[in-house]
Design a binder for these strands. Structure first.
Lengths: 236, 236
DNA sequence: CGGCAGTTTGATGTTACTCAATTTAAGTGG
DNA sequence: CCACTTAAATTGAGTAACATCAAACTGCCG
């Protein structure tokens, strides 16, 4: 049973789902003293597997995760990095199964909202419908931009693009000082997200470091030349 | 002014948007004798440009189109091939601008539904909301699978995947005999969709032909060894 | 101290790109 | 029907980008 404590697990986000939900669904849960499920996960733990059935819409509250696709030949493509406030998979609002598996990248917490509640709110509240629609649109936008990145751009450009994208997402969550970003990803994650090998990612990061563009170590990204990073990584 | 003639332009499709719309929005238009806009386009013509504003939700009724992204260095990534029944861009249901440009691949026709009508129906009719949600989900699913294809798979695998995907889509529209598919795409389109050069696509298609897997010419795809094509192109 | 996960570096191999030319197919106007 | 034009498909040779394989190095933890 969760009362005021919900906000500690899943603090109000300006962005999207979690914020909109807390204002209503969580209030509702509190009012009726219903149980609002949440769950803690260890780094590396599988949160949901492919085709797993779920009666809940699952949202990341703390830590990072990622959604990915495993190919038959053992390689994996990271489809999206999940930050606090992100739904694990937007299709959960309408479907009862995960289309792709999800893993915890760091230690993480998730909250689970019963799908019926979400859907009820969806039909009752136009502004909530808009919020959900925007999640779908943003997800699509990013997937399609990423398509262009993987299809058309060089290793340097791919990595720069990914870092810029993550920087934007991180900035939306916390204030950044001195161009220093908490970025809890291994080089392997970057490789799996942009379709390169770890070895090559390592070399490119080395080049960026030598050129004084960025430094990535100890889970921190230090941007030294934001202009150049932007020049390399932007697509339009 | 369009009366019964609408169905000739945009015949009822079992799939998604167009079918669901015709049952109601078009009926409505007919009843109130409103004008339901449509438009004919020549092969290669730009249907909508990036960030173009539009008060309508635009749907392909006949012919093929494609949505794409143009990079700063002049390359282009085809994001999705559009077949009859497809919305040019799903975001149009909620937003008034195109996020990516759209071109006609063959001569084509589009129908335009005022967004207010669509949104009204969306709020009034749960089953229509589900139809739209499924469009978003399918779009996302495909984009993310394609991410894995571009990120992780070889040239052969990419092309095989694309062809299998298009075959599925074509089959949903018309009956296929003798494994022969109408496929009005140039090798350049395949190249731009899977992130390869035309030259390389040509070579791979040559290999497939030599191996008796497929033949692609004159706008027709002849599948000679469906099993092998599936083996090469499937991701899971 | 040993073991493990992650990073870094080197040497070599392969895939797909680039550049350039040729061939084929599809019009188009006379 | 033929000369002419143009877009698309095809082929060859040389090259660049990235992968693969293998090993060494680092920091960390028990």
């Amino acid at each position: 049973m969760i009362h005021g404590s919900l906000c500690e697990i899943c603090p109000r986000r300006n962005s999207g789902f979690c914020g909109a939900l807390l204002e209503d669904v969580a209030e509702d849960a509190r009012a009726t003293a219903e149980k609002l499920q949440y769950q803690a996960l260890r780094s590396g733990e599988l949160i949901a597997s492919r085709n797993q059935s779920s009666g809940d819409v699952v949202v990341i509250c703390g830590g990072w995760g990622f959604r990915f696709l495993q190919t038959s030949d053992g390689r994996r493509q990271i489809l999206k990095f999940l930050l606090p406030g992100d739904v694990l998979s937007a299709n959960l609002v309408f479907e009862d199964r995960f289309r792709f598996p999800v893993k915890a990248l760091t230690d993480a917490q998730v909250a689970k909202f019963p799908r019926e509640k979400i859907q009820a709110k969806l039909f009752a509240d136009k502004s909530f419908l808009t919020v959900v629609a925007n999640i779908y649109i943003a997800e699509n936008q990013h997937a399609e931009e990423m398509l262009a990145v993987l299809g058309q751009r060089s290793a340097k450009q791919r990595i720069a693009y990914l870092l810029l994208y993550l920087m934007k997402r991180i900035s939306a969550q916390s204030v950044i000082r001195e161009h220093r970003y908490r970025l809890p990803v291994r080089q392997q994650h970057i490789a799996d997200a942009v379709g390169l090998t770890v070895v090559h990612v390592n070399r490119i990061l080395g080049i960026f470091r030598d050129q004084g563009i960025i430094e990535l170590s100890d889970g921190f990204l230090q941007v030294l030349n934001a202009v150049e990073l932007e020049r390399v990584g932007s697509i339009n």
